[in-house]
Computed example of a mutant assay.
Amino acid sequence: MDLILENLAAIDDKLSQRHIDLDPNGYFIIYVDRAEGLIHAKHFTNIIDDRGLAVDPETGKVIPARGKVERTHTTVFSGRTAKELSVKIFEETQPCPVTQLDHAAYLGREFVRAEVALVTGQEYIQD
């Protein structure tokens, strides 16, 4: 069983290193609030420049992928489950803040991971 889990973790780790095109409608910071029993997804807008980099629409500066970034979110979506959060973002919000299918799939995976962490008490770190 441990070998199977190690193989699955290796697959995920490798796939986490691949190139992805950024969604021109923005990105989400996902976190768990145990006191409230909620998963939160803060949405931030961005612009994708001609190099494929995310740029802050207010400052014109490239948004770094690592490290602390001081930006104001446009919306916070919250739900008790991955499904509830997905419905709020993808079905109830018009226009939808997600424009790419790979971004939608990524968010679904992350919402499930956050829900599992919330239910089990494990730490959640967004991939």
Rank of each mutant, 00 (worst) to 15 (best):
19 H>D: 14
19 H>W: 13
21 D>N: 13
22 L>H: 13
22 L>G: 08
23 D>R: 03
23 D>C: 06
23 D>W: 03
24 P>C: 01
24 P>G: 01
25 N>Q: 02
26 G>F: 00
26 G>Q: 01
26 G>H: 00
27 Y>Q: 10
27 Y>E: 13
27 Y>M: 06
28 F>H: 03
28 F>M: 05
29 I>H: 08
30 I>K: 00
30 I>E: 01
31 Y>A: 09
31 Y>I: 03
31 Y>M: 08
32 V>P: 04
32 V>C: 14
32 V>K: 07
32 V>L: 12
32 V>I: 05
33 D>A: 09
33 D>S: 13
34 R>C: 05
34 R>N: 13
34 R>Y: 08
35 A>E: 15
36 E>I: 15
37 G>V: 04
37 G>I: 03
38 L>N: 10
39 I>C: 00
40 H>R: 11
41 A>F: 04
41 A>M: 04
41 A>E: 03
42 K>P: 12
42 K>I: 07
43 H>L: 10
43 H>F: 05
43 H>W: 08
44 F>K: 02
45 T>F: 03
45 T>W: 00
45 T>R: 05
45 T>Q: 12
45 T>K: 12
46 N>Y: 00
46 N>R: 06
46 N>H: 01
46 N>A: 05
48 I>K: 00
49 D>V: 14
51 R>F: 09
51 R>A: 14
53 L>M: 08
54 A>G: 05
54 A>H: 03
55 V>P: 04
55 V>F: 02
56 D>A: 07
57 P>S: 04
57 P>R: 04
58 E>P: 02
58 E>G: 09
59 T>L: 00
59 T>C: 02
59 T>Q: 01
60 G>F: 05
60 G>A: 05
60 G>N: 11
61 K>R: 15
63 I>Y: 12
64 P>R: 10
65 A>E: 09
66 R>A: 11
66 R>P: 00
66 R>T: 11
66 R>E: 15
67 G>I: 04
67 G>T: 06
68 K>T: 15
69 V>R: 12
69 V>P: 05
71 R>P: 05
72 T>C: 11
72 T>R: 15
74 T>D: 13
74 T>P: 01
74 T>E: 09
75 T>Y: 10
76 V>N: 08
76 V>A: 07
76 V>K: 12
76 V>R: 07
77 F>P: 10
79 G>S: 09
80 R>Y: 05
80 R>I: 10
80 R>N: 06
81 T>L: 09
81 T>V: 06
81 T>R: 02
81 T>H: 04
81 T>A: 09
83 K>L: 15
83 K>G: 10
84 E>V: 15
85 L>D: 04
86 S>D: 13
87 V>P: 11
87 V>H: 09
87 V>F: 14
87 V>L: 14
87 V>G: 08
88 K>W: 07
89 I>G: 08
90 F>E: 12
90 F>W: 10
90 F>I: 12
91 E>Q: 09
92 E>F: 07
93 T>D: 00
93 T>W: 02
94 Q>T: 11
95 P>I: 01
95 P>Q: 00
96 C>F: 11
96 C>A: 07
98 V>F: 02
98 V>K: 00
98 V>Q: 03
99 T>E: 07
99 T>V: 09
99 T>Q: 03
100 Q>N: 06
101 L>E: 10
103 H>A: 14
103 H>W: 10
